[in-house]
Computed example of a mutant assay.
Amino acid sequence: MPFGKSIRIFLPEATVTGIRHAEIINRTGQAIACPRNRLDELKEWPETGKPGVYFLFEARLGDSKPMAYIGESENVADRLLSHDRKKDFWNEVVIFSNKDDNLSKSHIKYLESRLESLAKNSDRYELENGNSPTQSSLSRSERDAMEELLEDIRLFLGTLGYPILEPLIQSSATQPTIAPASTPESPTNQELKFTVHKLVARGVQTDEGFVLKKDSTASKTYTDSLSTKLVKLKEQLIADGRLLIEGDHLRLTEDILMSSSSYAAALIAGTARSGPQSWYSENGKSLKELEDQAAASA
């Protein structure tokens, strides 16, 4: 049975862009988010002067993937002063530590390794890490405790606006226990197909929008009805190598998140399209029919 969780966020200056402290009720994990230009103030937070893991995040300013770096230290605040001098891309850090001071060097090395692996699998950010960190050897009980803390870190990151550990498409293996299960006729997380002019695209409706799946093919050309935003996005995807030119069409080299099924269909077709009437399930039902059925069931 899934259980909800309450995350308490303290804003010391009553502003959402400054330092924020987050904790889950009745749990020992805690997080502190800090803008780069406020690093000197971390000395006032003893939570940052202990063993922990941290993420350096680049602001999302365009359609390209933002960069991130995952690290660990026995004194995170001190380590960050080094990063401030040596790494230029980031504008905010999110730090994780334990209230009970029970995290050892082995624990944080284990967390760092697992976090990098999860972030790579989710593929939402370009990781600036060099070599993959070695996963330290822990006893079964300690490993389970760290896996539980990883779930808390995932919740902290998502709540603070950084879903770096969230797969674009949730599977039964990756879906957290707190997520509600979809009904068989629900359009959420169900693979859909769109075909037009010999182009074949597959996608999935999610809580965040519509995910166009890797290897979907798209039109190289577009009409005047395609929005300027989508024209610029297509150009950016080609420049990034996420859309590859193959003969008379384009092919996606990775999953990408779109704001809606209509935007996804328009990107594929190169012209304005109705997403709910373009995408179909394996049993031949349109996305509109699936949404109508889900609404009726609710």
Rank of each mutant, 00 (worst) to 15 (best):
Y222A: 13
I24T: 10
W279I: 04
L212C: 05
G18Q: 10
V16L: 11
G203V: 04
R79K: 14
S104P: 02
S259G: 09
G52F: 06
R20S: 03
T177S: 14
T48G: 01
S219N: 15
Y162F: 15
Q205M: 13
P276G: 05
Y280V: 02
P51H: 03
K109A: 15
N121F: 11
R154A: 09
L42H: 02
I256Y: 04
P35S: 06
G49C: 12
R38C: 08
V231D: 06
S262F: 01
R124L: 15
L237H: 02
I7K: 09
S64T: 13
D100I: 08
L56N: 04
K198R: 15
I164P: 02
A298Q: 11
L237A: 08
V53N: 07
V196Y: 15
R140W: 01
G52Q: 09
S225V: 07
E185G: 11
V231L: 10
E128W: 08
E191K: 14
P46S: 10
S141I: 11
S259A: 12
A14K: 13
K232A: 15
T221K: 14
E126M: 10
D88A: 13
L127C: 05
I19L: 10
I19R: 05
K50C: 14
I268Y: 03
K5M: 11
I245Y: 00
L237I: 09
L138F: 04
Q190G: 00
D224R: 14
L56G: 12
D240T: 07
E128N: 12
T17K: 14
R114I: 15
K109P: 01
L81I: 11
L290W: 02
S274K: 04
N189D: 14
L233V: 11
I24F: 08
T48D: 01
L267F: 08
S64H: 11
A298D: 10
A68W: 01
I238N: 01
S97M: 02
N75H: 09
F57S: 03
V93T: 14
N26E: 13
Y280Q: 05
S137I: 14
G161K: 08
